[in-house]
């Protein structure tokens, strides 16, 4: 008997009836169930309800209003523009730091990681105010520039697109660095050695091997940052001007002070759909799992 079992099931023998917990679908389903239920009850259901009620009560009125009013189109454009600039800024600043993290020694790496994540302990509001101290008309940077005679008048650094992007980049940069670092750590360093020994200078090895291999991580990290940026409201409210009003700020005003829940819901749904569409497009071209450190395809 033992011998026949070792040789595996013969083609004619019926498939063995496995105990419930050994079936392939069982473990994932059981493990995911709490999360799924939580998501359905506290996330998907309320949103579905909100959309449904909105459509029932007021039809497409909210959506029509949003897409026909200049002010919301401007807010969409602001949000898109700020999010794109923030993403690019984070990438440009974060990529070299993330790359440096992969080449330095362990102790320096730990130190940089602590420094990178340190601002996270600070409140958004405090961080935004510190920009006022730096960028204001009487701020540190302008005082130095005027003091040195480089400029006659203080530069308008605060309460504009520049300061909003600077503030948002500061908040999101750690996430960008950590996401890129995670992706870069998975690149086999020996590939760089292989490139160098076969004739590539450090720079060419980086350009032809490391950089292309890091792109998947770059796309993932950028998506993450872009989507996070779409939902910002404290930073643009504190160190931006009304010209940089972002979607979430408008949603808050509509929902909390104007009590216009129809428009607020419509605006939220537009933001949500835009985010989902982006994510789906991304997933079609790249493997979304990479964001969470899944296997490279």
């Amino acid at each position: 008997m033992a011998g026949s079992q070792d040789s595996g099931p013969s083609p004619t023998s019926p498939a063995p009836v496995l105990p419930l917990f050994q079936r392939s679908w069982f473990a994932p389903t059981v493990l995911l169930a709490p999360t799924l239920l939580w998501l359905i009850f506290f996330y998907i259901a309320p949103i579905a309800l909100m959309v449904w009620r909105g459509l029932m009560d007021t039809g497409l009125q909210g959506y029509i209003k949003i897409f026909s009013s200049d002010i919301y189109l401007k807010v969409f454009w602001n949000t898109l523009q700020i999010s794109i600039i923030t993403t690019i800024g984070c990438l440009v600043l974060g990529y070299p730091i993330a790359f440096a993290l992969t080449v330095v020694g362990r102790r320096l790496q730990a130190l940089i990681l602590v420094l990178v994540t340190l601002p996270y302990w600070l409140d958004y509001v405090v961080r935004s105010y510190s920009w006022i101290v730096l960028l204001g008309r009487r701020g540190l940077i302008n005082n130095i520039l005027v003091g040195l005679g480089i400029v006659d008048q203080p530069l308008p650094l605060l309460f504009n697109l520049f300061s909003v992007c600077v503030g948002m980049i500061q908040v999101l940069l750690p996430i960008m660095i950590l996401a890129l670092f995670g992706a870069m750590s998975r690149i086999d360093r020996r590939l760089m050695l292989a490139a160098e020994i076969h004739g590539a200078s450090r720079w060419r090895a980086f350009r032809t091997v490391f950089f292309p291999l890091s792109l998947a991580g770059v796309y993932s990290a950028c998506l993450l940052i872009f989507i996070s940026a779409l939902g910002f409201f404290i930073v643009p409210a504190l160190i931006g001007s009304p010209r940089q009003t972002m979607i979430t700020q408008s949603i808050l005003v509509l929902a909390e002070t104007l009590l216009n829940w129809t428009d607020a819901a419509a605006l939220s749904i537009v933001l949500l759909v835009a985010t989902m569409v982006l994510t789906i497009i991304y997933d079609r071209f790249f493997n979304i799992d990479r964001l969470w450190g899944g296997d490279q395809r």
Binding site: V125, Y129, I132, V133, G136, R137, R138, G139, L158, A237, L238
Partner: peptide, 13 residues
């Protein structure tokens, strides 16, 4: 927010 004008006038902005 209430703290903005308070901070900004204190810092000379």
């Amino acid at each position: 927010t209430g703290s903005e004008p308070q901070q900004l006038i204190a810092s000379g902005e």
